[in-house]
Structure formats: C-alpha cells, structure tokens
Amino acid sequence: MVIEFSKYQGLGNDFILIDNRQSADPIITPEQAIKMCDRHFGIGADGVIFALPGTESAEYTMRIYNSDGSEPEMCGNGIRCLAKFIADLEGNSEVNKSYRIDTLAGIIIPKLESNGEVTVDMGKPQLAAAEIPTTLNSSNGKVVAQPLTVDNRSWSVTAVSMGNPHCITFVEDSSAIALEKIGPLFEHHSAFPQRTNTEFIQVVKSNYIKMRVWERGAGITLACGTGACASVVAGVLNEKCDRLCTVELPGGCLQINWSEDDNRVYMTGPATEVFKGKY
C-alpha cells in the first residue's frame, strides 16, 4: 500500500499527517506508525496524525500515534499542524477560520490567524487527582507542590491534565536536567497509572518561563503544546507566573493564556508544512 502524507512541524515537534477522511479508523497500524516515525529507516517524526471524518458535533476527528505506537488523548502542537493540514486539503486560505475537531480529549477548536500562526482553545484544565489520573496526595482536590521521589531525590510536583496527564516541576536551571535519564523514571512512575508527560520549568520572570519536556510515548521533543499549557496552569497555581505567559521551548516560543474569564486555556504558535511525499 502506498500512503500519501504531508510532514508538518510546530516548533520542531514534527508529525506525519495523513488524509484519513475515507475511513473512521486509522488506515495504518501502530506498528506501521513506529516504522514511519523512525528517523533512520523511515520518514522521521514524533508521531503520525490522522484527519478522520467528523462527527455530529465536529467537522473532523483527530487521532494520533506516538513514535512508540502508543495513542495519546491529545497533542497541542499536533492539532495546530492538523488545522493547517486541513486548510491545505480544503484549499482554504481564509484567515480567522476555525475548525471543530473531535479528539479523545473532547472537542478542540483551532483558529487560523492572519500572521500564519494558529490559536487553539485547549479547554479547561483538569486538576482533580482522579481526572489526571494520579495517586499523589491532593489538597482541596488539587495536586499542587506535592513531594514525589524519583531517582532517590524528592521533587515538588504539580499535576495537571489538558486531556492528557502532565507532571510539572520547577527547577533553577532547566538546561541542567538530564532528560534522557530522569524523563523515563517520571513517565513510568507508579504515581501515574496511565504514565505522564513531564515538564521541567525555569521561571525567568512572571510572564516568561523556559520549559524542557519528556513526552509520554515520544521521549525528548523540541516542544509540547499541552505541556506548555499545563506548565502555565501549574505556574499560576504555585504563584510563580502570570496567566498570560510566554513559554520558551527548545524549538521556539508559545503564547499561553489561562483566561480568568472562562477558565479555558488558549495556545498560540506556529505550524509549518515541511514537505509532501509517498511512503
């Protein structure tokens, strides 16, 4: 079978996009996605994203396989790329165009901006321990600044779900973290029964933070949209950053706004086509 695809990236977080509108299920298996994502023997990507038919409440459905074949509920950088991909499929150059996209985390609404970036209504953060899910102790129902022992060290962590689980910890120097060593230990910690994404956050000032991430199912990536959202939420809960905040990732910056008016998180950032091909 020959598969046509487009390669997109959002701040270096890269994806293989497949037009899957002819079927309600992904046209390749997780095992095939692993091979496609291989950076030496395949196309190379952090994941494969499928544009599937819509539902009664959405124009399209999004599914994604990580580079290890697992399936996350959502991907912030990925849905920005998907919005650009859909616009390309439709031949749509309209600015301020919004799409309702059904995901395993619910309905997500990305909007194409006039400057070429995409703003995504990421919904309301989930803060209850059972929603994340995590077995960490909670105070007033929230897991904020709780101790977690990883690699014989006690870390102060805050847990947030943006439709997928995140464990956020604040550090003096995010560049000093040995992600390849510590990341898997956080991801597979018994306190997170569905595994977790982990963000290491350095607060530069109240409206500007630096973030490095170990993504569940993908490892070290240059950016993570849901992680940036979760990190700003955690920063506000820990009184370390503002609701409107720039998040600097290795691949570039995202603008995050946890709106006080409606409790929803809005993410704005780029999404760019790299190339098209056949596999």
Rank of each mutant, 00 (worst) to 15 (best):
V2T: 14
G12W: 01
L17T: 08
I18Y: 01
R21E: 08
R21T: 14
Q22F: 14
S23E: 09
A24E: 15
C37M: 12
I43D: 00
I49D: 05
A58F: 01
T61W: 04
R63L: 15
Y65A: 11
N66S: 07
N66G: 04
N66A: 06
G69Q: 08
S70Q: 05
S70D: 10
E71F: 06
E71C: 13
C75S: 12
G76N: 09
G78N: 07
L82W: 02
I86R: 05
V95M: 09
K97T: 13
T103I: 07
T103V: 09
I107M: 10
I109R: 10
V118F: 03
T119H: 08
A130I: 10
I132T: 00
L136S: 04
S138M: 08
T149R: 14
D151P: 05
S156G: 02
S156T: 09
S161L: 00
S161N: 00
C167R: 01
V171L: 02
E172I: 12
S174P: 00
S174G: 03
A176W: 06
P184R: 09
F192E: 08
Q194K: 15
R195F: 10
F200Q: 06
V204C: 12
Y208S: 13
E215H: 11
A218D: 02
A218Y: 01
C229D: 03
V236R: 04
E239H: 15
C241L: 10
C245P: 02
Y266T: 05
T268I: 10
A271N: 03
